[in-house]
Design a protein around this nucleic acid. Structure first.
Length: 100
DNA sequence: GCTTTGACTCTCG
DNA sequence: TCGAGAGCCAAAG
């Protein structure tokens, strides 16, 4: 782990149950900050690759946003968890979103 | 140690 | 409804 901030992010991500997703905004809010972008960075540099489900983090509007290994991989992973994706966007976003 | 950049979000036109 | 601009925080250069 690099910093405490990132550690907090990873910890929150680990909380996310399978088949659910969250947004950068919610994570930042859980950390009581507006470091939406910093949260994304933490995931990008995620040293706990498979341990931390960074692919379960999407934009506030339900779109996938970005992914280090390509949006396609993210899409595939989410679909694998039972989340429907349509054009890089979560179909039933409000239903699969996980609130801390 | 300051400047740039980024897997973001909000507001305005 | 959609695109552009500004704002925010942290990490890297």
């Amino acid at each position: 782990m690099a910093t405490e901030f990132q550690n907090k992010v990873y910890r929150l991500l680990k909380r996310i149950p399978r088949g659910k997703v969250t947004t950068y905004k919610h994570i930042a809010h859980a950390l009581k900050c507006k470091a939406y972008r910093a949260v994304g960075m933490a995931c990008n540099k995620n040293p706990f690759a498979p341990k931390v489900p960074c692919h379960r983090v999407v934009n506030s509007d339900g779109t996938l946003g970005g992914f280090a290994r390509g949006v396609k991989a993210k899409k595939a992973l989410l679909t694998r968890e039972g989340i429907e994706i349509k054009n890089n966007a979560i179909v039933k976003f409000k239903q699969v979103v996980y609130r801390f």
